[in-house]
Simulated assay, not measured.
Amino acid sequence: MGIWLYLKRKIQANLFTITNRNLLLLSLLYLAVCWSLLVWAGEDELTSSFGQFVYYLMVTASTVGYGDYSPQSDLGKWVVALIVIPGGLALFAALLGRVATGLIDYWRAGVLGKRKLSVNDHILLLGWNGQRTLHMIRMLQHEEEGNRPIVLCSRSDIENPLPGEIEFVKVSSYTDSQEMKNARIADASCIIVDNLEDDITLSSALYCSNINPDAHLVAYFKDEALSALLSQHCPNAECIPAVGAEMLAKAAVDPGSSALHQELLASTRGMTQYSTFYPVSAAETNVEQVFMFMKREYQATLIAIQGEKSIELNPDLNVTIAPGMKLFYIADERIDDFKWDRLK
């Protein structure tokens, strides 16, 4: 008696649950029953080959009804009316529902940040700061123009703020190796860390640097001491300090400075700051020649250079520019291909 009750509970719990396995078993059972009944009814034309049988079954069960094949005997018509069409409609609806549910679950997992991504050479943003993060994403989209995908990774209780435009990963910790696998840190070409708490920014940046030391790491800090600590452990990291106080003081002394700073940083309008490299294969030159070349050919203005040492802002015209040096300039749009052969 106990065995019978156990089997009954197992059958009730599993047989009538529409799992993928049960759906497959029901489909196979449906094919076997329809084939057997049509053979028994003498419908030789419908069962002359398995391919023709499946074709007839799909056309009939889905109620498309082309009419090129149909049962000839009365018994065959009863089989089709009572078994083939009702059973096919039920299975067809169940299959379509399962596919639709799977697609919705897949899309929903992406919105909730629970899906493992398949991206490479992407820009990874760690942290969510509301409108500031959205503004940064918009600027990155304008700069990249579809070149690199953008992935937002956040601990905040949010959904993907830009579904269809960026990828999204939801984690409970930026240093949880199991959860952070979804963000594919090792395959990112640029990692931007921007959190409200500097200690989280520091730990996240150190973790990312350990996973992917070749990525361009950018971190925003309000505390200069923590910024210096990250620079000490990760010399290649680019630490962005909080400049609110400096901008306030500058605007107080030189009215209009804040508007100028916004124009220099905005990537969607006006004169914006960009950088490029003087080709390694080019001959040594000086600031005056490069300055005039950029202005004459591209209406761009050279504002700084960087060699092995720190950035030199507003360099003298006779300062040497060696091959491989980094050049900073302002222009309406980024100049992707400088024709350095025109440099005189």
Rank of each mutant, 00 (worst) to 15 (best):
L265R: 08
T285C: 02
E288W: 13
W340G: 03
T60L: 05
E159Q: 12
V59F: 12
S275Q: 13
R155F: 01
W340N: 01
C239L: 02
A228H: 15
L260C: 07
H122W: 06
R98D: 01
S275C: 10
R132N: 10
V64M: 03
I191T: 05
G87Y: 10
S204V: 04
G244L: 15
E312D: 13
I166A: 01
D68H: 12
Y220K: 10
G146S: 08
G324V: 06
Q273W: 09
L162S: 08
G113A: 07
E297G: 03
L23M: 13
Y55A: 08
E312Y: 15
V33D: 04
L117I: 07
R269L: 10
I150N: 09
G67T: 04
P149R: 11
I185E: 02
G113W: 10
A41K: 02
E333M: 10
R21N: 10
R334T: 00
Q178E: 15
P255M: 10
A94Q: 00
F293S: 05
P163K: 06
S156V: 05
I18K: 10
S62F: 07
M294K: 09
K77A: 04
V151M: 04
D254M: 14
A205Y: 06
Y55L: 06
N210G: 09
K295Q: 15
H216R: 12
T320P: 05
V287F: 03
Q72R: 04
E238F: 15
L264E: 04
G51H: 11
V253H: 09
D44T: 14
D214K: 14
I166N: 05
I321G: 08
V280I: 07
V243S: 12
F168I: 00
M139N: 09
I211F: 04
T175N: 06
T60V: 02
M292H: 15
I240K: 08
I335D: 02
V171T: 08
S118F: 15
A188N: 04
L15M: 12
N212S: 01
E224N: 11
R98L: 08
L117P: 04
S231N: 08
R115N: 09
A100D: 03
D187V: 03
I3Q: 02
P241L: 09
L152F: 07
V243P: 01
